[in-house]
Structures are given as C-alpha cells and as structure tokens.
Amino acid sequence: MPAVTSKKPPVPIPLLMLIGIVAISFSSIFIKWSSAPVSVQGMYRLLFTSLLMLPFARPYSGAAFALRRKDWLLLVVSGAMLALHFLLWMGSLKFTSVASSTMIMALEPVFIMLGAYLLYKEKNSMSAIAGLAIAIFGVVFIGWGDIGLSSDNLKGDLLSIGGTAAVAAHLLIGQKLVARMPSYLYSLIVFIAAAIVFAIYNLLAGIPFFDYPPREWGIFVLLAIVPTVFGHILFNWLLQYASATTVSMNILGEPVGASILAFLLLGEQLTILQWAGGVLVMGGLAVYLYAGRRKAEKRSEALTSIS
C-alpha cells in the first residue's frame, strides 16, 4: 500500500470520495435490474474490469515474473474468495432489500478484525471492540425486521453475511500480498483469477455464457465501469493522497447511498426496525473507525518521539 504523501490530486479529495460512494452505491441497483444469474454477472463484471486494466499493466510485468509459487497460490485463493463474495452477496439481493444487504456488508471490518486477530494476533482497543459490538447489534435488528417481512429476506441476510466473511478473507490475503507486490498487479491478477473461478462454476452448473439480450450486456459493462472502476479502483488510487482510515470511511457511505437509490429507483421501503438497525450499524462502525484512527495517530506519535 503506497504511503500517503503531501501532494494533492487534480480533483479535490472530498469530491472524488463522493464520486466513489455514488459509484459503488449503484452496484446493488444494477444487480437488481439484471435478470441474468449472479454468477454470470460476477464473471463479466470481473472480466470486463480486467480487460480495462490490462493496457496499463505493462510496467508491472517484471514484478509479475518475480512472484513465487506461494504468491501465485495465495493470489488464486484470494480470487476464489472474491468470487465467493460476489456469488453470495449478489445472490443476497435476489432475496432481501438493497438496504439490508448493504448494511450487513458494511460489517466487513468486524470480520477483518477477527481474522487479523486469529492470523496476525492484531489487537484492538476496547472502544473499537465496543463500536463493532454496537454494529453487530444493529445487524440483529435488521435481521429481526426482515423476519417480519418473509423467510426469503432472512435468507438474503445470511447470504450477505457469508459474502462479507468471504471478502474479509480476500482482503486479509491481499494485506499480506500487497506488502511485496504492486497493488495494481495484485488487483488485476485477482480479478482474472476470480473471473476464471466464475467461468468454471458456470460451466459445471450448465449456466449459459452468451445467451443474454443486449440490455443484460449493457448491465455487465456498467457493473465493470461504474462501481468497480469509478468505485473500488478509485478508492485504491486515493490511498496515495489520503490515509487508509479516511478512505475506509467510505464503507459508511455505500449503505446510505444504496438505500437512497433503492428508494428512488426500485421503490424499496424500510421498516422501523431496519432503520434502527441501520443507524446502529453505521454508528458502531463510525466508533470503530475513529478508534482505529486514534490508534494509528498514537503509533505515529510514538515512532516520531523515538526518531
């Protein structure tokens, strides 16, 4: 991950973050609009994104040849986890509301914290743990509200939780790999690996690759360009201008943006329990991210005093 520099991007950071939040918020809307199997949507989203990235990959060819066999294995596993994330999370949108699914997806830091503790023995402050506990309590509220709607809604919530756990595993592997390889190269290889995993899944499941109307192909392209290029890749690019904690605050924006878009474009309504759960999730995550920033500031101050 590149170090934050004092240089400024050509466009103000707040405006770029707003563009990124709006872009990723459209992801669930496009998925809802599509009638294609989610595994096909995920495959073409990653394939088209990879094709857009390939022309800029030549400077990283040397780093690719320097990768060890173990690195390639981890890249494939990371790609498989990313594919599983898309399969479960995108599948959840067929059963539950955009708001419920994206609010649960915002719990990604919870799974990352647990994984980092189990794998790397990373510890968190009590305030960070308290924030995550509040967020988990909020998910219970969301699930409770969904039970009152239908059993399918609860099934969608569970799929979203599974998708969140999968993307956390993907990010934890990525945290280890980007320490010794360019993040652009990592993203490109993982996207290609995930697309191949989806292709194998579709082949084994007998799901057609090409028998879709032009409207569906348009949605596949939009999924690659809008939420992926102008969302996730933009956030990765912003890491050279802003701290990881600042960029990660965008995770709070997606459920809000997606819920507003779902109300305007899909006519989705939320129950009082779902709203209450959403407020708890967002509030708990805000506490967690603030605690993480304070921890990073104290570590930086300690290093400065030593030097």
Rank of each mutant, 00 (worst) to 15 (best):
I233G: 03
I142W: 01
L149N: 08
I21D: 01
M81D: 00
V22S: 07
G20A: 15
T228K: 00
Y120V: 12
V178P: 05
Y290F: 10
I29Y: 02
V279P: 03
A258H: 01
T271D: 08
Y184K: 06
L273D: 07
I192Q: 02
L73Q: 08
V287C: 12
R69K: 14
P2R: 15
F198N: 01
S248T: 07
R45D: 07
Y288D: 05
T271P: 00
G42I: 00
G138K: 05
A262P: 00
V38Q: 02
A286N: 02
R299I: 10
P14H: 00
K155E: 06
G277T: 05
G277V: 08
H85L: 07
V140D: 06
G62M: 14
G231V: 02
A23E: 04
L107M: 15
S150T: 11
Y117A: 15
L74D: 10
W33Y: 12
K70G: 06
F263E: 04
N236E: 14
Y184F: 10
G253C: 07
V287D: 06
L265T: 09
Y44L: 02
F111R: 03
Y290W: 11
N124Y: 13
G138Q: 01
M43K: 00
A242M: 01
E301T: 09
I161Y: 04
F210I: 12
L154R: 05
A168L: 10
S27N: 12
A244K: 06
I192H: 00
A106T: 14
V140G: 14
A193C: 11
A296Q: 15
V110A: 13
N124W: 08
A224K: 00
L172I: 13
M90N: 02
F86S: 05
P182H: 04
R294E: 12
G62F: 13
A224W: 00
A165Y: 05
R45K: 15
F235E: 06
G163K: 03
T102L: 05
D211N: 13
N236G: 12
V139N: 04
R294G: 04
I260N: 09
S151G: 08
Y201K: 08
R299N: 14
M81N: 06
A99V: 10
I112E: 01
T304W: 08
F209M: 10
V190A: 04
S6V: 09
Y288C: 01
S61M: 15
I161L: 15
L84K: 03
L51E: 09
I136H: 06
S92F: 01
L18K: 03
P14C: 05
G283P: 11
Y60F: 15
E268I: 11
L132E: 01
V281K: 03
A116C: 12
S150H: 07
L261F: 11
Q41P: 02
I219P: 02
F210A: 11
V77H: 02
A66Q: 12
L222H: 03
I306L: 13
S300W: 06
V279A: 15
S305M: 11
S150G: 12
R294D: 09
